[in-house]
Design a protein around this nucleic acid. Structure first.
Lengths: 193, 193
DNA sequence: TTGACAAAAACGAACGTTCGTACTATATTG
DNA sequence: CAATATAGTACGAACGTTCGTTTTTGTCAA
């Protein structure tokens, strides 16, 4: 790999970390350059604009999410087992980040900020919901879910649950959060069985 | 009311509006002053610091939320009727804001930002969860909920549902969101009945 | 393996603007 | 007339971005 690509990865890694703590909008080129000990202008040259940097951080996070959450769970037998594994790796993903999940924070940050960042995020979120839909379909095929299950409703229910978990876990630091999540998930799955 | 108090309300109103679109951290004193057509320094004098401004915006939002969501629903007969009314006014609350719900965005913004703003937000969120808990307790007393219902779990479930609704509604602009919410709410209530 | 050389990458300085905050002075209010 | 409220000006720092220069890298001939 060429030198420039290596540097870019270092930048994106630090950028993701910073975005997870402060939000994408507060990732400043100056502070990011300071963290990885390079010059503002040298860093800037890799992206040509702050907006591009933000989009690339988001895409970098998307690749990581795919690698550590989606791909592994698709290797597991379809159905409830897969869904539970997915939830586990999903939680690990957001726990691994210094701050909160970047997709959660970006979703609130950019719901009213037109531009490339918002468009990128929207694409990612819709893809993710489609992915959840397909996982529910596979659960129908495997016989774990009833045949008449509304897969888009499943996606909504599961995503909602994870958002609740994220709030309780990251902001409120509630000690019973894992238990709450477990109960809610069991109830959710029972409703579709 | 004194002149200063009137001005302060104008500021907080505009500040809440801006915070709902851009997030509390991006409410700048300069841009806010421009919006309400007064000088930066004149506006600043009301708060002595940006942090105080943010805290006051949050408390202003809290008072509004209490007036338009909590108080009205407590006037309704306890139980399922009250809960449904609460959800309705909760949705109206976040629809009325130009951007998203300020509590949702602030929750992700300040989960890793120590300071007065975070402390204020934490207090509000814990109060709100306690409020949901008491509403569930009242539903038990009224006979709508089973006696063994875990009220804190109810709070978690309902808050999760609302967070999902908020994401679908504000970012994804999903046309089926209201239907999804309705289905999830009915299922939630049935589980506690 | 080395030396030369072009391409790529990183740098430092500066641009104009905005940030939050601190002062002092002028208007407005009670 | 005193108290309160608003305006004006200035500050140092940080913002994103541009520029020209220097350093580092990869390639190819010797």
């Amino acid at each position: 790999m060429k030198k420039g690509q290596e540097t870019k990865i270092v930048i994106l890694e630090a950028g993701l970390d910073m975005a997870s703590q402060l939000g994408l909008e507060c990732v400043s080129i100056g502070s990011l350059a300071k963290v990885i000990k390079m010059s503002k202008s040298g860093l800037f040259a890799h992206f040509q604009s702050k907006e591009n940097l933000q989009v690339e951080i988001l895409n970098y996070a998307g690749r990581l999410f795919s690698e550590s959450v989606i791909v592994p769970s698709l290797k597991i037998k379809a159905g409830i087992t897969r869904i539970k594994a997915l939830v586990d790796s999903w939680i690990n993903w957001s726990s691994a980040l210094t701050g909160g999940c970047i997709f959660v924070s970006a979703s609130t940050e950019y719901s009213d900020r037109p531009g490339k960042v918002r468009e990128c995020l929207l694409r990612q979120q819709n893809d993710w919901i489609d992915c959840l839909d397909r996982i529910a379909q596979a659960a129908i095929s495997s016989g774990d879910f009833r045949a008449d299950v509304d897969c888009q409703q499943f996606a909504f229910d599961l995503y909602s649950l994870m958002l609740g978990f994220h709030l309780y876990f990251k902001l409120l630091d509630n000690s019973e959060t894992k238990k709450r999540k477990e109960i809610a998930l069991d109830r959710l799955l029972n409703n579709y069985r």
